[in-house]
Amino acid sequence: MKNKKNGLTLFQSYRLYSGGGFLSSFLVFAIGEILVYLFCVSLELGLDSCFDGHSTADVLHDLSSNLSQRGNSDPTQWIFATTLSTSILLQQFDRSNPGGKFFRTVKGGFSTYRKYRFVVNMIILVSAVICATVAFLLDYFGIIGLKGGIVSSIACVTSVVYSTSVYCIAIRIKNKVFSSVTSILTVVICSGIFGSLPLRGTEVMIPFIILLAIGLVLFPISMRSYFSYYKRVFWD
């Protein structure tokens, strides 16, 4: 239903900017992250076996038998890959970029852009939650072991939340090279911190839940700050 004042719904805004449907983007992203998780786990276990000098058949055998054992999959690289993949969706629409001027003249103007970014953030967060849930369930049912269990899953979502928030602040860096480097470093640092903590032998959930809660409070604050800065510096 169209809001007469602003003109476009959240999903229309997303479709306008992305050129594609929300559902297809969301499914691609969510399934993609799950596949990334499976790939990271398989790669790690497969490489370990390869480095031991086993034959291909032995590698495959080791892979299938080790997958289900908890403690064999390091969450750090999976969390890094998931966090990094969120940056794909966080593209800018500067005036000088293709489409930059077009988007400033459509119905709703900056309001439409805000709606689009809101949907993007929801895709990022929800697909991270889904991926983390799948990883936890695979571990819970003994299919693919995950070191740290549910704590690693919470760490993944926390990493995504914090790195997206910091990314919103990184655009304030005027030098585009430094801004891009800072964004990548943010991904590395967040995934490094939150990915490695479950490996320290503790599976106590509460600190992670607190960190996640703080992150979820900081997230809308960072987005508000982002929109204010982006409109003033990049949009107008």
Partner: peptide, 15 residues
């Protein structure tokens, strides 16, 4: 916005 038809030079739409 509705009554004005605007088209810029260069790449107006995403490529």
């Amino acid at each position: 916005l509705e009554r004005i038809g605007y088209c810029s030079s260069g790449n107006f739409f995403p490529l």
